[in-house]
């Protein structure tokens, strides 16, 4: 290594003479960091998404490699967030990849003291049966004046503000056709 290279390799020299007077970019780069590349550069795919927490609606880029989310970043294209995310948005990779996430159906039987395993299809069948039983047991055709009611007060549902519009649409459509009216979400609280 010549003297000149040696001096130019000194960060403070680069900071004073180069384009990075604050020493927060190229001036501070070491040989090791120069050789690094962002993990977002080598991913299999990137999806353009939106932060799932508050209603500011910050843009996110979700990077996927080998079927796993490897990074979630702010989307610089978004005119709302211009690449920024707050602590919650920045932590959303761990929301998606957390090993605390439930990935299997859990079932607690009446009077049970712990969770049991249950197959997804079986759970769906059991829920469909229970919806129809509750509906039949509490069905109201008409009020005392003979006016139509067409409903059940035996079923309730709560939640929707974290879900997609398309999902809320189907939820309301299905429950309404079943005569279930006690449908509510976070907007009521």
């Amino acid at each position: 290594m010549g003297v000149r290279t040696w001096i130019e390799g000194w960060p403070v020299y680069r900071q004073l003479t180069g384009t990075d007077p604050l020493g927060r970019g190229a001036a501070a780069q070491s040989a090791r960091s120069k050789g690094l590349s962002a993990r977002t550069g080598t991913v299999d795919s990137m999806a353009r998404s939106v932060c799932p927490y508050c209603a500011v609606g910050c843009g996110q880029r979700i990077f996927v490699t080998d079927g796993k989310v490897v990074q979630i970043e702010g989307d610089p294209d978004s005119p709302i967030s211009r690449g920024r995310l707050c602590p919650k948005g920045s932590a959303s990779k761990s929301l998606v990849t957390s090993d605390r996430r439930q990935t299997r159906v859990r079932y607690r039987r009446p009077f049970g003291t712990g969770w049991e395993d249950l197959d997804l299809d079986t759970a769906m069948d059991m829920i469909a049966d229970r919806v129809l039983q509750a509906r039949d047991a509490t069905w109201e055709d008409r009020d005392s004046g003979g006016r139509p009611l067409n409903r059940t007060l035996g079923i309730a549902s709560l939640g929707g503000a974290t879900l997609d519009n398309e999902e809320n649409y189907l939820i309301k459509k299905l429950f309404t056709a079943l005569g279930a009216i006690q449908i509510e979400n976070q907007a009521r609280i």
Partner: peptide, 22 residues
Amino acid sequence: ALRGHASIQGSTDIPTLFNLLP
């Protein structure tokens, strides 16, 4: 109005609320 969930506005417009239809 600064609302607190990602789509709480959407779930009011296309409501999962007892008193409203879309």
